[in-house]
Design a protein around this nucleic acid. Structure first.
Lengths: 349, 349
DNA sequence: ATTAGCACTCTATCCCATCGAGTGCCAACA
DNA sequence: TGTTGGCACTCGATGGGATAGAGTGCTAAT
């Protein structure tokens, strides 16, 4: 994008003004609010140029300009400068992320809630992608005839469990044998390398009759697979209605409708994450307006960062807010929450 | 409420018409839509009377009438007749409540989601009140030095667990002893009779040094207490925006804001439930408009039914919708979901 | 007790005039 | 060539009538 300096400043100013006033910005008010050493007519020429480049647009023929998706993109990529949060803001966030919880899940929910409160937008987090973490323990507890609990401890300090159905007439002892065999053979294996075949192989030589054994092994496998399923935590959906950008009811409805299908959102975040892994970006993912392929999010921006539970186990945390947001601020808020989250997570590993 | 027959019919008709049209109903349209064998002037007199009794009201001097909270209450208590769902509707619900899930929690979430889909309103369920269920098993699993998992199996077929911190230098064997002692002494006791004292007494004679023992017992107690904490599941909040009753944005915002504090809603449901237990009502709780003491729910009705996991372990499931709802229909929908839920729950006990 | 008739009330809607912020373009200027 | 003042034009927002329509309460007659 070959823009001379003044045009860059103009775009910068338009984005800033539009973000803070929520009104299309015209050449005259631009002059009033900023120290351009030229006349409004000159700015009008510049603005015509910027519009030609697709960076800004007019809602109506005789209205001021608002940034286009491309304009926001340029702003985010090249123009804005990110400032650190003030110590007071930092303290506020640190205070809210309660460090006394006993489970990683609660910590993540906490951070998500905090992020929604500080930004005023919808926040979301993905559970850690555990497929790279490995099994440290696996126990099968008999609950009652026909029912057992598979408990797994993973390397990332996470505990998962699942109630499963087992054949009625299996004895406690048989179950112990099976769970011991699985644990012995699969400990240390990353979850994504554990398949039904691996589990079945691990269970061999347990002196349990074939068909019974097979069912238990299958259930154990299912439990392991469920352990690395991704969860998504959304928070603060109701804040959408407090944003002037979504006062049209129709938009708010579409957006909330989409967000209510959390599985779909989770799938999208995952897609984004996969796309990132093959690129050279830093750890932020920013999608603006139409770049987002979820229905009803045309007027939104979607920003996530990657937190780390261990070196190889990570997840995402971020916000969904209006395109018209204070990007630099929001990004540093997400960044700070992410860092705090990373720090707190060390307690678990 | 001493109302002659025609006045009852008039109130009935006003509620019906207002529910279906969402417009204040006047004397003339009442005549048009129903077979009253009198003139509109007569109805006007009746309506003036009903208004005097506080059963209906006028939005403006020259508008038709709408039911007041009291009017809806009279309608619900004495006027409406509840019809069964059609076989088709029943089938639809049965189909949606997937019976293949392995955990009670998932079943409840499923039913809640189904209820929101069938009614088009916000639905909610409380987790079973487990304080009357008793401990069937309690195991403490060592996860790593300093960390253990307390697994509890309750009489209602529910499995609960909690990660707890324990002293670093406790051995596997010591933990087993403690968990064995707790299990031995507390099995069969209802959760609400288990106190810190009971747990400490149960743990005596385990030959584990006093201060270490005490900490583990405390954590076990905390885990047990957490097991009977109530959870609330809300679903379909976004549907609020699809209701004409909440097209004013301000109202929708207040309502969603209140619902976002799920703890508060849970507390309210619990309060309602407690109030019910001392009354002779049947199993439905209906709160209309201002009867609801939650902020922002003035235009809502809150209807819940009680499901049973076992004879003594129950929870609530219901909806929050606009006051202007088809009560008879919604009640039978909730009732049917509740019955289906009860039926499915038998698999777990 | 019921009814027809009537004057009155209030909202919703449409139309129209006006205002104002903003634009594009042109001609002049450095 | 880039910058500027000037000007005609556009279009949404605002606000003031005028009108229509549905509904009401009251009165007098049945």
């Amino acid at each position: 994008m070959q823009l001379d300096n003044r045009k860059k400043e103009v775009l910068h100013a338009i984005v800033d003004d539009y973000v803070s006033t929520n009104e299309p910005v015209g050449s005259k008010s631009l002059i009033e609010r900023h120290n351009f050493q030229v006349s409004s007519a000159t700015l009008r020429n510049d603005m015509a140029e910027l519009e030609h480049l697709g960076l800004i647009e007019k809602p109506h023929t005789s209205a001021g300009r608002i940034p286009s998706d491309k304009g926001y993109r340029e702003y985010v990529n090249s123009l804005m400068t990110i400032e650190e949060l003030s110590p007071k803001e930092q303290l506020e966030i640190e205070k809210r992320i309660d460090s006394s919880v006993d489970e990683v899940t609660d910590l993540i929910k906490n951070a998500t809630h905090t992020l929604s409160e500080t930004t005023g937008f919808v926040s979301l987090a993905m559970s850690p992608r555990l497929k790279k973490s490995f099994l440290k323990q696996l126990k099968i507890l008999m609950i009652e005839p026909g029912k057992a609990l598979v408990v797994m401890v993973l390397s990332a300090g996470v505990v998962k469990d699942k109630v499963v159905r087992i054949p009625n007439f299996l004895s406690d002892e048989q179950i112990m044998k099976i769970s011991g065999a699985i644990e012995k053979n699969l400990t240390g294996k990353p979850l994504d390398e554990i398949t039904l075949v691996t589990v079945e192989t691990a269970g061999k030589g347990t002196e349990v009759p074939e068909p019974l054994l097979k069912q238990v092994l299958y259930e154990a496998y299912a439990a392991i697979k469920q352990a690395d399923e991704l969860n998504i935590y959304l928070d603060g959906e109701h804040r959408i209605l407090e944003l002037p950008d979504f006062n049209s009811l129709g938009r708010a409805r579409d957006l909330l409708g989409t967000l209510s299908d959390s599985g779909m959102v989770a799938g999208y975040v995952n897609e984004m994450e996969n796309a990132r892994e093959h690129s050279t970006d830093d750890s932020f993912m920013i999608r603006i307006g139409q770049e987002i392929t979820l229905e009803g999010l045309d007027d939104c921006s979607f920003i996530t960062a990657t937190y780390n539970l261990t070196d190889s186990v990570s997840g995402n945390i971020g916000v969904i807010g209006p395109k018209r947001m204070l990007y630099s601020k929001v990004i540093s808020q997400i960044d700070f929450v992410k860092k705090k989250l990373n720090k707190e997570m060390q307690r678990f590993t």
